[in-house]
Design a protein around this nucleic acid. Structure first.
Length: 424
RNA sequence: GGACAGAUGGCCGAGUGGCUUAAGGCGCUGGUUUGCUAAACCAGUGUAUUGGGAAACCGAUACCGAGGGUUCGAAUCCCUCUCUGUCCGCCA
């Protein structure tokens, strides 16, 4: 959520920021509502002041046994006016809030311009794709042929965009998650968390999925939402809290299933495990001071990329352009891993700095040391470290042999009971 | 799911209709004293909105879990809800 005061002082900057995301200007509409709201509030407050004053006088008059009727008549008249103003003020304030909740974050100045994915800029590249002396198969064909990946029976059980992993591939997925968690907790300073997967409206409002993106989420009959990413649960760990400066930076990681309706993705990535309703992900979340957030984004991206380096999987880091960047982010790096069967790089992680955007929505603050009064909003960052399902895809495709067997990457062997080759 | 008890500032905690401008304590900040530290003492210290001011600042309003209601006036009385604790039931 953006700061209303900032909008008041910088309406043109808001509209310019929206234009970068190809969104229509709204500052005039907000400022108009805000102006009416403030006039209403001012009038209401002066009436409340008068009411309080007269009520006190009534107390005094009655205590002395005098006649308070004229004073009481005045208060009655004030109350009539107040009711109308209060309703008006509530309505206007809510209208302003609803608009604010739907405004995307303001992009950082160094975010490249661009309308869509094609405008993203490569920041760096690591590793060299192996040249295979045979035609690479995609992960779905490999896994199915091995007998450890079953899309057909998954469809019987759950419909499209689900998969059943069995045997060595089920274990491989677990091994990948283990490697990620161990690396982030033992080497990168993150604290492992096992958070709720079902959350309330407020949690999703806080991270920004609601109110705009309800269609992308699953909702239960009891009123809960299934998390589309552990970012929701982890970031809300500081919701409605004032954290001590000594607790920052707070680095959290979680291995969880994620649930997405993929409502707008009909026809996209229909084959294989790339886009599923349910997938596993190791998430990274950092809660930091405003001064630290820019450097933390670089650090987090490096932590995520480090997993691919351990697995010796070629990747590139892309700075997302204005048209491709998510709703709540100020700046985002995507990490894309090399997939031989698609002969291209595909997203496997997305690391974003949201600045105070989420913190403002969830009222997450900290007390800066040395300042006796006042609190400041924390900055929040999130990133995949990494998408486990897609990492499995990358391992299968990059480590495949001509006979369809899969060499287990060195880094995963300790987690696979020493297994070195996955074959039928 | 049932019964009972709770929810007050950063934290603890008092407060049963107007002397509340939310007592007191802890913490924090500044000061005094002082070889240093500590202690003691003094002072200050919530959030949001809004008005005035160039600013330091000054004023107003709201906020005692949330939302309604009663009343001239509500932290305090009433209703609904949420959450927490204890016990019971059910349960992986």
């Amino acid at each position: 959520m953006l700061d209303l005061k900032w909008i008041r002082e910088n309406p043109d900057a808001l509209d310019a920021a929206l234009a970068r995301r190809k969104a229509a200007p709204v500052s005039a509409a907000i400022l108009d509502l805000d102006k009416k709201n403030r006039a209403t509030v001012t009038e209401l407050q002066s009436l409340q002041g008068r009411r309080n004053e007269v009520s006190k006088q009534i107390g005094g008059v009655k205590a002395k046994g005098g006649d308070a009727a004229p004073l009481m008549a005045e208060v009655a008249a004030i109350k009539d006016k107040m009711a109308a103003l209060e309703a008006e003020g509530t309505k206007l304030g809510e209208e302003v809030r609803q608009i604010l909740l739907t405004l995307p974050n303001v992009l950082q100045a160094d975010v490249p311009d661009g309308a869509d994915e094609s405008g993203n800029v490569e920041v760096r590249k690591w590793g060299t794709p192996k040249t295979l002396d045979f035609a690479p198969k995609d992960h779905a064909d490999l896994g199915t042929a091995l007998g450890f990946m079953d899309f057909n029976q998954a469809a019987v059980i759950s419909g499209s965009r689900f998969v059943v992993l069995k045997g060595a591939l089920a274990r491989l997925e677990r091994a990948i998650a283990q490697l990620m968690l161990d690396t982030h907790t033992e080497q990168n300073g993150y604290t492992e968390v096992n958070p709720p997967l079902l959350v309330k409206d407020e949690a999703l409002l806080g991270t920004g999925q609601l109110p705009k993106f309800a269609d992308d989420l699953f909702h239960t009959t009891a009123g809960h939402w299934l998390i589309p990413t552990a970012e929701v649960s982890l970031t809300n760990l500081v919701a409605e809290r004032i954290v001590e400066a000594s607790e920052l930076p707070m680095r959290l990681t979680a291995f969880t299933p994620c649930f997405r309706s993929e409502a707008g993705a009909a026809g996209k990535d229909t084959k294989g495990m790339i886009r599923q309703h349910q997938f596993e992900k190791v998430e990274l979340v950092s809660i930091v001071t405003p001064e630290e957030s820019a450097a933390e984004l670089e650090r987090m991206t490096a932590c995520a990329a480090g997993i691919l380096e351990k697995l010796n999987l070629p990747y590139r880091v892309m700075a997302l352009c204005a048209g491709d960047i998510g709703f709540g982010a100020q700046k985002t790096y995507d990490i894309e891993v090399w997939l031989p069967a698609q002969n291209t790089y595909r997203e496997i992680s997305s690391c974003s700095n949201t600045g105070e955007f989420q913190a403002r929505r969830m009222n997450a603050r900290y007390r800066p040391p040395g300042e006796t009064k006042g609190t400041r909003f924390v900055h929040t960052l999130n990133g995949s470290g990494l998408a486990v399902g897609r990492t499995l895809v990358a391992v299968l495709e990059n480590y495949q042999q001509a006979d369809g067997s899969i060499v287990v990457p060195d880094a995963l062997r300790p987690y696979m009971g020493g297994l070195t080759l996955i074959k039928k």
